[in-house]
Write a protein that binds this DNA or RNA. Sequence first.
DNA 1: ATGAAAGCGCTAACAC
DNA 2: GTGTTAGCGCTTTCAT
Lengths: 348, 348
Amino acid sequence: MSVTQSDIASKLGVSQFVVSNALRNTDRVSAKTRQRVMEAVEALNYRPNSAARATREGRFGCINLLLSANEVRSALPPKLLFGIESALSAQSVDLTITRVPDEKLADSGYLPRFLCERNCDGVIVNYTDHCPEAFIRQIERNHLPCVWLNNKRDADCVYPDDHHAGELAANQLIERGFRDIVFIDYAHGDGQDPDTHYSSRDREAGYRGAIESHGLRLRIVRPPHNLPVADRLDYSRQWLRQEDRPEAVLCYSEADGMPFVMAAMSTGLKIPTDLFVGVISNRPITMPGYNMTLARVPEYDTGVAVAEALLKKISQPDVPLPPRAIAFKPSRPPPRQDDLVHPCFVHG
Amino acid sequence: MSVTQSDIASKLGVSQFVVSNALRNTDRVSAKTRQRVMEAVEALNYRPNSAARATREGRFGCINLLLSANEVRSALPPKLLFGIESALSAQSVDLTITRVPDEKLADSGYLPRFLCERNCDGVIVNYTDHCPEAFIRQIERNHLPCVWLNNKRDADCVYPDDHHAGELAANQLIERGFRDIVFIDYAHGDGQDPDTHYSSRDREAGYRGAIESHGLRLRIVRPPHNLPVADRLDYSRQWLRQEDRPEAVLCYSEADGMPFVMAAMSTGLKIPTDLFVGVISNRPITMPGYNMTLARVPEYDTGVAVAEALLKKISQPDVPLPPRAIAFKPSRPPPRQDDLVHPCFVHG
DNA sequence: ATGAAAGCGCTAACAC
DNA sequence: GTGTTAGCGCTTTCAT
């Protein structure tokens, strides 16, 4: 098999205990012996067996990220994953991923592996909604430290601050001189369905707050639910044809903004001068010749925060953690396109 | 601490051996005893400790996915991750993720945890290029079974078949009646830089093959390297203004197609009738009112294939696996938009 | 069919 | 400073 501490010990004529202490850099071994051990480690290419350490220490040095098979319920953008991974690896904690396939959920007896065995020290549950009750029960039953991601709860949860997103985006538009600003969300119907993710209502509420505090006019567009993506272009075209066309639209997401960009372009409007289309997105979007993104989703920061929250929860399982809402970031345009971003007309 | 096999054994007045065998469903325990054990397992909420099992069995039941911090080198779309996870969980193998931050690579002594310790049975290396030499050396030194992802090598690698992508996309356009088809790639300069990812050259080569085998005219557009995304719209506008405007453009990716869509719309061309813009992408793109996607990146299938390849490699470490190129999929439009997808003019 | 005991590779208590 | 020993929770060998 592979090299163990005993192999090194017998090669050097010392006890395995000495090797163990040398490796863990305790003060119970002489510098000289330690030196010899380290040389043998290098020569034999010894690497510690983490399963044995975990067995002995009673902890796994590993946490699990639980995801739904439904991507809408468990968004996992790479930067979110990287944020989690980064915060964990700083503490030498491994990350495992579990995704629960729909077909398995059909038979209700199914449990993901980390709920049938002990193989991790805690869980990040990334379900915006509809996390199966059986999972939650089993997590509690196992006393597994648990933090929720993208889910607002009374405690033990981390999520991007969507209210702040709406406010930040609206304020950016107001600062740039716009006075007639529409909020638009294609994806969530009227926003009243109880299953609608809070981000839709929260971004709208943030927009409302900013607009009202400046005494401006509220204008909210929520096209019918389930309007196919392919029909949004036409819908946007008709909407822009009205007399009362706004100066700027603030879109829930990139997917809501692009139809407006295309609609404007195909009806002879100049973007961003005749109509400023702004979006909330996870990255700058410069495709239309200027940066559409007003507020950036703090994916990486959210990942870091949720991982750190779980580590804290593991060390103090009984202390409830206050909910953490992570602020969005303003998205400045790249310097060289600065001129393009500012509208030609400036009010007030 | 937590419930062990011994706890169950002493509660039932049997030996721990019996409990172990009952749990693993060997034939060395009577049905009746087994039944009693299972009841106690349920009552006490026993769950096996996977670290102890791993220690004993000498394998971890876990593999590692290695990623660069540079997202371009280590693309990890959610579906790829899900494909990997799905194939592994079918074999009860866990997946851990390791991403190597740039700042750590600066000091060359750094090695990710799974290369310093033994905590997994194999690695998927997802580096299109520039995987640090030290990592590769250490993987070999540790005799860690290893399969490459998104990287063409002589053996032990899995990647989407980008040649097939170009061919498939071009053939779709030809079948729909187009005869004057341009291939365009904004992101990779002239494609000759040795660091350019093979996918750029391969997609172009697939396009070439299809076009030439139909006796059509090759037209390839490769704008200067590092043309900012924000400038692509203008570039596309000018390009479309020429006399010799093609019937269709086949774009390396969505990011190459959108500027053409916008350019066409803003100069009065009708999409997709005056100009058909098609792309290679990981999903159907219906935003412009029709489905732009001609060939879909087989992300999930690639994930499944690479995971299965690694599992095979683990069971037969010395047998080199032939490279596996995963076919792209044609992307049919959603039924109700069928009429929009076909161009109004049909040739020959 | 069941039990006793060894041992996986490691950490930690306790001797000297 | 070093060695001895026990033990983590499990699988496996060998008795009975």
